[in-house]
Design a protein around this nucleic acid. Structure first.
Lengths: 157, 157, 157, 157
DNA sequence: TTTT
DNA sequence: TTTT
């Protein structure tokens, strides 16, 4: 009934832009978020959190984000599952972002401080079908490690 | 650098209270959070999000939460991984809660509207070791589906 | 660049629905949010936080919220100012809500568990003019205590 | 029952460090947070949001924050009131921060990327007395514009 | 493995 | 598979 996530971290790699069969842009990246405490060895660990963005926001992220960039992400946690090639259910957790803020400039050449990068959906017609038994081509990130095709069924709002 | 989650949803089952070898309480449960849109079939889906609480908050959750209860959770996203019995890395994503609010009373017998249920850590000495190669007994939830032992190494703050 | 608020509290009064000159619905109410600690006298105090909602969400809130109802609000902090009748600048702080969740049912007669109550704006064309010097008819809430007219200029997104 | 704010913005001035009579550090500053839309004149406005930090976090903020710095703040909304010199109630709204992240380095001389800047309270004994009738020396920020003394009574957690 |  |  309410599902809100706000993260600040750094990209572990350049973002990946892809398109669904129907032509919708999807960009995926991973944020490294340092934990607020150190472990038993006195070292600070990080959580590596998968982010997905759609449509215009996906294009903007692909254009402006790069590995290492400090970035703020607002969105919701999404948990999906599919049956892997051994017929076992694999669960995938990711943050579907609807607002991304570029906290570092792009190598001196431009300003990114102005202009919000928000999802502009004309809400209401939404659809998102996950959990379709047997179908395995339904997601950006796989906890399994395999690259997987994305489908129009994953379109959020 | 910042990692904040706020959820409101319903417990899919009664919470499970366990103890680490050193006697620290850990309670786990899953929140069903309805998505803010309907899928292609016009149905509202939910995300099933794993929650972990520690220490005093774990005891309180085990005592007062029950299947179906509307509950608010505040915490951080944590991503852990371990090698499963086939030597494959399994990733586990969960929300480590530091504040849980009981939004529904306990069947008329008590009030839960007063009193915050917050993690009371004497911050600073914290430690949390995940990602220890080879060790597989390190987590409350497994995306693999197997029940797994919990370890003191997972203690957050 | 990022401005996010999430509150859970109870309405101090029934919500007030009004309309701007151009016919846009605005609903205002105040949430009492208990503080997470007690004061020197051992008593728990509350913060009384002003909420504003617009358009469809305003209508829904006016229809379904009532004094005392436990309610979750998501939005952004807005700070406005105007010159009062003595020519002094008065500052008004409120939360402009874009998502409101009714956490308690309406006296048994209905269900409120399904259906999100979210602001549905066709983002992009937005406008909001506050801080107009001399003009005093620009806000729902006044820290001054006077009832004030609302204006189309306050329309957010 | 839940009161969470997350902001990213820039300091409008250098932070101000003061001490309560009993020697507790309090730092105040204002964050300019650009609104996510433009007004009727096509200009982007900002909300100027007052922030208060206490104790160790106050010292760290005073040491490392400066006018113009991009900063993330996590905390809760607090609304206080007092009677001004004309006997009128004045309301003050501010964000009491428990986590502040410095998103820009300090002119090249140091690193601020490591090390969380979090409030370290030994929770449980808390107290905070506002709303004391007649007393006017109770707050960092005044919507009235007058500088006001701070008091130990405002100590949160 | 999923809640109302 | 991980960022500074």
């Amino acid at each position: 009934m309410l599902n809100r996530v706000i993260l600040i971290g750094r990209l572990t790699r350049d973002p990946e832009l892809r398109y669904t069969p129907s032509g919708t842009a999807v960009t995926q990246f991973t944020l490294a978020c340092d934990r607020p405490f150190t472990n038993q060895q006195g070292q600070r660990e990080a959580d590596f959190i998968n982010i997905v963005t759609w449509r215009q926001l996906a294009e903007t992220c692909a254009n402006y984000l790069r590995k290492g960039r400090l970035t703020a992400v607002e969105g919701r946690i999404q948990v999906r599952n599919y049956d892997n090639n051994e017929g076992k259910k694999v669960y995938v957790t990711e943050v579907v972002a609807d607002n991304v803020r570029f906290l570092e400039s792009m190598g001196g050449n431009r300003n990114d401080g102005d202009g919000y990068n928000q999802n502009q959906s004309s809400s209401g017609y939404n659809r998102s079908d996950s959990n379709r038994g047997g179908s395995s081509n339904d997601d950006p990130f796989s906890d399994d490690g395999r690259p997987i095709d994305i489908s129009d069924d994953d379109l959020p709002f």
